[in-house]
Amino acid sequence: MRGPTRSLGPYAALWRLAVAAAVVTTVCLGTWVGNDDWWPFAPMSQYAFSVQNNGIINSLTMDALTVDGEVVRVPLSKEKIGIERAEIEGQAPRIIAHPELLQDIAVLHSRLLPHEPAYQVIYLRNTSTQIGTGAATIHTLATWQVRDPLRPQPSGIPGGAP
């Protein structure tokens, strides 16, 4: 048994058709020719890159020399320092070109983890691991001497569109 049916008038049908066509076209173009800046129509690119079977796996880490003289791993996660490792990986070329961006990691650390010893030097490092042999090499990509480690102020570098 079917009850009443509510049909669409010509305009209601037309705008729905137009929206459907626009959404499908844009999301397809996003993946075919677009980039991350197109979000929510950005390429569906997670895990889309290729890794050679005997290739190298790169993994970024950040270490810091604290004011207590200890070298610690910077906890790159939203729960701890408020920014994820993947976000730092995405900005690695910027950080290598402008190491003073690491000043802002010290600022973030002082804001979100104030009870921990302050950072005085911050290192951005890459670990390359050979698939198969497991042999790993570590390179330091950027180093920053934090200005005023106990009360670090932001670098002031403008953010915004890439």
């Binding site: 408020g82 920014i83 976000e87 995405g90 900005q91 961006l101 802002d104 600022v107 973030l108 804001r111 979100l112 932001p154 670098s155 002031g156 570098i157 403008p158 953010g159 915004g160 569109a161 890439p162």
Partner: peptide, 8 residues
């Protein structure tokens, strides 16, 4: 709380 320099 992230300084705006890291905002893209």
């Amino acid at each position: 709380d992230v300084p705006p320099s890291l905002y893209r």
